[in-house]
Amino acid sequence: MSNNNESNLRVIKTARSKEAINQAAKEGYWPLVKPVIPSPEIKTKYAVIQHSETGEIEISADFRFDSMAFGEKGNKVIDFTFYYPYHFENPYAAYLIPKDLKINEKVFLEDLIEDIVGSTWNQGDSYRLASSEAVWDGTNFKILENEKVDFIG
């Protein structure tokens, strides 16, 4: 198990298929299985602008962009519509708990199963938190959310 995060915490992996979960169980991990439930708070928007002569389209995610696509030749054929933008392999997943994980141990959840808002945009879009620090209480993780998450890399 690697220590690959800012605080040098143990990294808890996530398995997102039956095969991966069962393989981890054979390797000695306890799969903490959870449903993958999309949160209505997480949403982003799109609009489709079509060129009135060629039929080609552009997709806009930004209110400032829709008037720029194709200039005067652009027709908005689908107005801005919010939707859930993430796709997961299965409607279930599992955190892979090492046998020696201690109660109150702080860890790093590399791939969050829970849908938690990580970043918001002032145009109404909200994006999910990809990973987080958390504390193990013996049966579940208490996720320690940051107030603000920047995109860095």
């Binding site: 690959n4 995060n5 800012e6 790093f108 940051n146 603000k148 920047d150 860095i152 890399g153």
Partner: peptide
């Protein structure tokens, strides 16, 4: 592509 394996925050 932005990716920080250390999950750094500004």
């Amino acid at each position: 592509t932005l990716h920080c394996p250390l999950n750094k925050q500004w």
